[in-house]
Structures are given as structure tokens and as C-alpha cells.
Simulated scan of single mutants.
Amino acid sequence: MGLASCDEEVDSSLLEPYLGPVSEALDVELYHSDSALVRTYLQAKKQIEFENGDQEFPEGIDITFYDEEGNITTTMRADRGFYTHKDNLYKGEGDVRVHNLEKDQKLNSEELFWDPNAKKIYTEKFVTIQERETLFNGTGMEADEGFNEYKLFKVTNSRTILPGEN
């Protein structure tokens, strides 16, 4: 009695690990606290999470920052958001806006990173900052996460806002 075997061709693509989303959530609200005080509040219409802990917010992301008394100090929004788990780093893309309510400073860019560990925001892209009646333009910016103090790099075309202009 003899044994026979035949080698079947196996489609190797069937053996590749799945890299797609592992979960999806709608109308997400996340609170980050420190010493029992709410420090940030994140809202997103849709959150997609991957196995490695990375997240994507394809329909936009809004982040609100609070002071020790629970007052809103700064808001940040973007058309799309991303979170990289291994670096604990958020990235906003599209129409990105930051507003420091206390100083009435506003920032617009097409890309912005928020590093919660370093408590800073930054970008290497073009930025417009409105501070009272003055517009500052530049490429590259770094600030504390509350957008209280900032450094603007490669400053170009800064000017005073004319009456009636916004």
C-alpha cells in the first residue's frame, strides 16, 4: 500500500495579517483628566480603531482644553484626525483651527500635531495666526497646547487687519 500526496498551491495573500479596523464607534466623547480634573474633551462623529491602538477620525475631530477651574481655555478642530498610539500623538488635517479664548488668538493651518506628553502643538506647514488686529503668516509653528505662547518660523506677509475685514 502506498501513500500519495499532492502539493497544493496556497494563496499566500490569505495568510497575510489583517491590517484593517478592529472597531468603529460613532458620536465619540472622550475625557482626559489629571488629578481628578478634566483637562481635555475630545469629540468625533466617527472613530476607527486599529489593532495597534492607532485611531482615525475621518469625519473630523474637536478637542477642548480646560484650566484648573474647569473653564474652557482653548479649542482645536480639524476636518480629519489621526492618533498614533505608540507615539501618543494626534494629527489634524484639512481645515485645522485653534482658538485661545482667553487671548482671542486664532490659528489656521492644513496640518497640526498635538503631543499630550510634551503638552505642545506644532506644524511644519503654512500657518496663519490672528492676534487681535494683526495677521501673522509663516511656515512652521510651535506652541504650548493651550496656544498661549508660540513661535512662528519663516514669517512672511504679516499685516494689520483692515476695518470690516475678517
Rank of each mutant, 00 (worst) to 15 (best):
V28H: 08
L101D: 09
L42N: 02
D95H: 14
K91H: 15
K125E: 12
L26D: 03
V38E: 13
Y31V: 12
L15D: 02
T139D: 08
T134F: 12
T75W: 12
T40H: 05
S12L: 10
Q55E: 13
K120I: 01
S109H: 12
N117P: 03
I161V: 08
E124K: 07
E145R: 00
C6W: 12
F126W: 12
E16K: 08
V98S: 00
V96G: 07
S5F: 12
L162R: 13
G138T: 02
L152V: 08
D7V: 14
D34F: 09
N71C: 09
E8T: 05
M141G: 11
D115Y: 04
Y66F: 14
L112T: 07
Q47T: 04
T40C: 03
D62A: 09
N108K: 15
L89M: 11
E131G: 01
Y122N: 02
G94S: 11
L101P: 06
Q47F: 04
G20S: 02
V96L: 05
M76F: 10
D104C: 09
K119T: 08
D54T: 03
E24T: 10
R80P: 04
D87A: 10
G164T: 04
K86L: 15
D67W: 09
T134M: 11
A78K: 05
T40V: 07
E145H: 00
S23G: 05
D54R: 02
E165V: 15
D144A: 00
D144P: 00
E16Q: 10
V10R: 07
Q130K: 08
H99R: 04
D27F: 10
L42K: 03
Y31R: 09
E142K: 13
A118T: 06
V22G: 05
Y150Q: 00
Y90A: 03
